[in-house]
């Protein structure tokens, strides 16, 4: 066993908040810049150039890229040799979120769903933990804006729908979302498992590094086909038309039940913010 004081988790989470909110995820700027170069629709091209300029300005002057600094989603891969000391892991994560949002002047967007009363410090975070081998803790922060989150979809298809049916639903979801999720978007797709697991896989697909394709040849082919089909919809940057509706499509899969074909879809906006770290 290796003792790890949860204070280290708090400071690591605070650092993740800072690095996520002022800068786009590595490679995301280049994707947008490339889309701007290839866009022939004048209005969409104006939007893409504005977004590139905005990302540079945000990084230089330490202003949040987007005012929707999100609900904080933390994915923690915890080595099973780790023994936490000094308090609760969940409390430590939330303390890191609290400090990070306060110290960096980020927006508190979290409230009670019934009373609509704001919690005042952007906690609680959504925390997904998984046990892995080893004695390290890997933390990933996805501060998720809700213009895009509100466009999430779950389809419980029948096995008869097949691969084509899955792809039709992904295209349908993006088409229904239209301009709302702030295109150009990244589309995360989770196929299989249960209803909740398909949604989790879709969200996990958004954690991939920019430019990384599926290692599964079938999924890779589906990612390419879907990206082409989505960009043929003509929604374009901000919904102004043109080719840049999606920058990437990423698919994850998991075995499912003989009766089922669950498809979860999670959409990331153009302000793709994501930070990762390892606590040793």
């Amino acid at each position: 066993m290796k003792d790890l004081c949860v204070q280290h988790i708090t400071s690591a989470v605070e650092d993740l908040v800072r690095s996520a909110c002022f800068d786009l995820a590595p490679g995301a700027y280049e994707l947008m810049e490339n889309a701007a170069k290839n866009e022939t629709n004048d209005t969409a091209s104006f939007a893409l150039k504005t977004l590139c300029d905005n990302a540079k300005l945000a990084s230089e002057r330490k202003i949040p890229v987007c005012q929707d600094t999100g609900m904080a989603i933390i994915f923690a891969e915890i080595g099973q040799e780790v023994h936490f000391t000094g308090g609760s892991f969940v409390d430590a994560v939330n303390e890191g979120i609290r400090r990070g949002y306060r110290e960096n002047h980020l927006r508190n967007s979290v409230l009670d769903p019934i009373t609509r009363k704001n919690t005042g410090d952007n906690t609680p975070a959504i925390i997904h933990t998984s046990l892995v081998s080893g004695d390290k803790v890997k933390l990933t922060l996805l501060p998720k804006g809700f213009g895009s989150e509100n466009m999430s979809k779950l389809y419980m298809l029948t096995p008869a729908a097949g691969v084509e049916g899955v792809m039709d639903k992904v295209v349908e979801a993006v088409s229904l979302a239209g301009s709302n999720p702030c295109p150009p978007i990244i589309v995360g797709v989770g196929i299989g498992g249960t209803a909740d697991h398909a949604m989790l896989l879709a969200k996990k697909a958004l954690l991939r590094d920019v430019g990384v394709r599926s290692t599964d040849p079938e999924l890779r082919k589906m990612e390419e086909t879907l990206l082409r089909r989505i960009n043929d919809l003509g929604i374009g940057a901000q919904g102004f038309g043109g080719n840049a509706t999606a920058l990437e499509v990423r698919i994850e899969k998991y075995p499912t039940h003989i009766a089922a074909l669950p498809v979860g879809i999670s959409i990331q906006c153009n302000a793709h913010r994501l930070a990762k770290t390892e606590v040793i």
Binding site: T50, N54, A58, P64, Q67, C182
Partner: peptide, 13 residues
């Protein structure tokens, strides 16, 4: 009017 979603830093200036 549509403003550019995701360009919050620019608008603040």
């Amino acid at each position: 009017f549509a403003a550019i979603g995701g360009a919050g830093a620019m608008y603040s200036e």
